[in-house]
């Protein structure tokens, strides 16, 4: 899932001050699961806003849609939109932008910082696992991502800073390449990393689009 963190209240307050009618929009998917931007967090933020800005006449509305990264769900907000001067989005960066695209004449303010693609270690505890680099090498690295889990994103590690299983940046951070070696060695697959891994394709830095096989014609028709 996409993991996010609520922004500090002061930062949110500064963004919305001056707007009387504000709608706080939560997202019911990733950010709800990671306890950053679901309906509960919308209620908490609105309570804080009322406490801090109620005297200025601000009374925020609340709405949480299934997914802000889907126009179909954002359309549910259409009837509400005209009652508000501005939106606060508690979705990830993708949801925030899609909300802003749905209502281009209204300001949209982010209430979370989108942090990473990660996993649930326990309630409230998440770990980054994927950088969405677009050229997955997990098949040869024992299912451990060197781009994400190595602080230098090395493809031919470990570097000289590997420290008895830890990364040089912190003894609490495992060395990705130590673990890759350990896992492949246990599986008898060390030959996977004997070859030199070539320079990576970082062309993911330009905005990306994907059309799944079978949908090309439909998309062409939509684009007219």
């Amino acid at each position: 899932m996409i993991v996010a963190e609520r922004k500090p209240f002061e930062e949110i307050k500064a963004m919305v001050s001056g707007y009387k009618k504000v709608l706080t929009v939560g997202c019911g998917t990733c950010v709800a699961v990671c306890l950053a931007g679901g309906s509960k967090e919308v209620a908490t933020l609105n309570a804080e806003l009322e406490l801090a800005l109620g005297k200025d006449g601000i009374s925020p509305g609340a709405a949480t849609v299934e997914r802000q990264c889907d126009m179909e769900f954002l359309a549910e907000l259409d009837p509400l939109a005209e009652q508000y001067d501005a939106f606060i989005s508690m979705a990830c960066g993708a949801g925030i932008q899609f909300l802003a695209e749905r209502f281009p004449d209204k300001p949209v303010f982010p209430a979370v910082n989108t942090s990473f693609i990660g996993v649930n270690l326990d309630v409230g505890w998440y770990e980054e696992k994927c950088r969405a680099c677009g050229t997955c090498v997990l098949g040869t690295t024992g299912g451990i991502c060197p781009v994400t889990m190595c602080a230098k994103s090395l493809f031919n590690g470990p570097c000289g800073g590997t420290n008895n299983g830890s990364c040089e940046i912190n003894t609490d951070q495992p060395c990705a390449w130590y673990r890759i070696h350990e896992r492949l060695s246990a599986q008898g697959r060390l030959e996977q990393i004997m070859e030199i891994s070539p320079a990576n394709d970082w062309s993911n830095q330009k905005p990306r689009k994907i059309i799944q096989p079978g949908y090309e014609e439909r998309i062409k028709a939509l684009q007219g």
């Binding site: 230098k152 994103s153 090395l154 031919n156 040089e168 030199i196 891994s197 320079a199 990576n200």
Partner: peptide, 28 residues
């Protein structure tokens, strides 16, 4: 060389480039 991680230096907020690694630099 790969280089020590930027967090050890006097600009810990710098973006570490690591476009290629030391192995790939040798090849290049």
């Amino acid at each position: 060389l790969s280089g020590d991680h930027q967090m050890f230096g006097d600009h810990p907020q710098a973006k570490g480039v690591y476009d290629i690694d030391s192995m790939q630099l040798i090849q290049m």
